[in-house]
Amino acid sequence: MTDSQATHPLMIALDFQTKEAVQAFLAQFPDPAHLTVKIGMELFDRYGPAIVKEIQARGCAIFLDLKLFDIPNTVERALTQLGELGVQYVTVHTLGGSAMLQAAQRGLVAGAKRAHVAVPHLLGVTELTSISPVGLRDEQNCRLTMTEQVVALAKLAQQSDCDGVITSALELPALVAAVGPEFEYVVPGIRLASDAAGDQQRVATPQTARQAGATAIVVGRPINQSKTPVSAYAQYQTAWNA
């Protein structure tokens, strides 16, 4: 990853419905080149790679969060396409299994090589932060505890050539102990103590996440729905660095 593609540990989720809303949001920041932003399914499904290129033109690093989950051949072909885009991170579901995760990494490497860009970091989604322990037990029929399940999936990701995982901060101490501090741990569901949790079930503050071993955090509504997003971003930066 070159200096111009350097990422920052605080990532902003661009959870907007239109590219005009995205551009208006980013225009409020004096230097968007200092930002790492997350593009999810909502924007990508509507605009495709074009929205990635538009945001890259502002200098932002990109976390492309599409959470791919399909048979290995399909995922490998899809990741070959995404690997050409010059983004910094992409995501797949660890529940797809080792063959799918390894196929995803092969696709990323092939795509990046074809486009002469750096290979994106491959992050495995463990359990969504919207899933509660009750949902894990009663809807996924998983007999492991939440921590046991997340640790097992992170170990699978590490053994299958992923660079890191997406995980709740609540499981971080167990993950760092079981998987190691060199793996990447990207944590969504981040809120300041004064923020509403919304539909997130397993939330944490920036300080808690960093102290537990997070390498990066993802913040959505508290920044992207703020009336003063630049100030909100600064608050979260301060909290992360505290």
Rank of each mutant, 00 (worst) to 15 (best):
residue 195 D to N: 14
residue 61 A to H: 02
residue 212 A to S: 08
residue 47 Y to I: 04
residue 237 Q to K: 11
residue 106 R to S: 14
residue 132 S to C: 14
residue 209 A to W: 07
residue 235 Q to Y: 00
residue 202 R to P: 00
residue 17 Q to G: 05
residue 201 Q to T: 00
residue 119 V to R: 07
residue 73 N to G: 06
residue 55 I to Q: 01
residue 44 F to A: 11
residue 114 R to C: 07
residue 90 V to F: 01
residue 208 T to G: 01
residue 219 V to S: 04
residue 164 G to P: 05
residue 107 G to A: 08
residue 52 V to Y: 05
residue 67 K to E: 08
residue 160 S to F: 08
residue 49 P to R: 01
residue 221 R to V: 01
residue 107 G to D: 10
residue 140 Q to R: 15
residue 154 A to T: 09
residue 155 K to N: 13
residue 239 A to I: 06
residue 177 A to E: 15
residue 224 N to M: 07
residue 101 L to M: 12
residue 74 T to N: 11
residue 53 K to H: 06
residue 25 F to D: 02
residue 47 Y to W: 04
residue 182 E to M: 03
residue 113 K to H: 14
residue 32 P to T: 14
residue 59 G to E: 00
residue 196 A to I: 10
residue 162 C to Q: 07
residue 28 Q to F: 06
residue 65 D to E: 08
residue 104 A to H: 02
residue 121 H to Q: 14
residue 166 I to D: 03
residue 10 L to M: 10
residue 233 Y to K: 13
residue 61 A to T: 06
residue 202 R to Q: 02
residue 37 V to A: 12
residue 63 F to Q: 06
residue 183 F to S: 02
residue 149 Q to E: 12
residue 121 H to T: 04
residue 83 G to M: 02
residue 213 G to L: 15
residue 24 A to H: 12
residue 76 E to Q: 15
residue 81 Q to I: 12
